[in-house]
Design a binder for these strands. Structure first.
Lengths: 135, 135
DNA sequence: GTTGATCCAAGACGACTTGTCTCTACCCTC
DNA sequence: GAGGGTAGAGACAAGTCGTCTTGGATCAAC
């Protein structure tokens, strides 16, 4: 059992994004591009000067993960998301399925069957099945 | 942004089980109950004495998480899983949906639509939908 | 009874992550 | 140049995770 390598640098977008970084991403999903200052004000309203550095570091790590990017030629620097929320959901779900179900979706589906589904979710499911059968 | 609390002791079964612990769980899912010795031999074939301690520690942490339990009155101690694989899948998926989709399954479903589904998975989906419509 | 092996609990350890904070240098504008 | 915002690079504590060690209990064989 070798040590967990965290995530290799070659791994472009890992499935897992920690909470504080996710909060930054949420901001960018809500509206982009944003400057570090804008993000800091939104995330730490009435915050101290140190929070600016915090957000900077979070952005730096998100950038290293390939989750956010800079808008060229802007000053002050502006950031935009490079992954969509759905991307992240997909990655996470795939990772779970891969690791726990050996790639089979069946356990996931049977779990869905046990969940309470809202009407619009049932609709989405119906549409999905129709689409699949159309292929 | 408060520090990540890891998981509170009151949290019975967290969604996330680290790799080495998962490997132990896999063993127990395959066949239970098992002794520490049996698990060690299976996980570290030809391993050193230290590995016994490793497996012990993993079991201890799994037990603290409520993922495994001891079989009463057996010596040497025997362990059995207290969570099923499907449980863990369910928890993980729910956690993702909760954190990234504000509880809505729609992004997950639309991701499934983009995935290649095997025939048996499509069947499971059909059955799921039939079941839902029957309610 | 002593020896030796196994078992079990508990802790120590290093590598790593994550959220926060600080220090410095760099522009700008006045 | 002084002051204010920006930017990049660490430093840091706390936590996680996989591993390994230690010390004591239990038990069988000699």
């Amino acid at each position: 059992m070798s040590r967990k390598p965290g995530h290799t640098p070659s791994d472009p977008v890992p499935a897992d994004v920690p909470d504080a970084e996710l909060a930054v991403l949420e901001q960018l999903w809500a509206s982009a591009p944003r400057t570090v200052r804008q993000l800091t004000d939104a995330l730490y309203p009435g915050g101290k000067a140190a929070h600016y550095g915090t957000v900077q570091k979070l952005l730096q790590r998100l950038e290293a993960r390939g989750c956010v990017g800079r808008v060229e030629g802007r000053s002050p620097l502006e950031f935009e998301p490079l992954v969509a929320r759905d991307d992240l959901v997909a990655r996470r779900v795939d990772a779970v399925v891969e690791k726990l179900c050996a790639g089979s979706l069946t356990p996931l589906l049977s779990h869905l069957a046990r969940r309470e589904l809202r009407d619009d979710e049932v609709d989405a499911l119906r549409a999905l099945l129709r689409d699949l059968e159309g292929r």
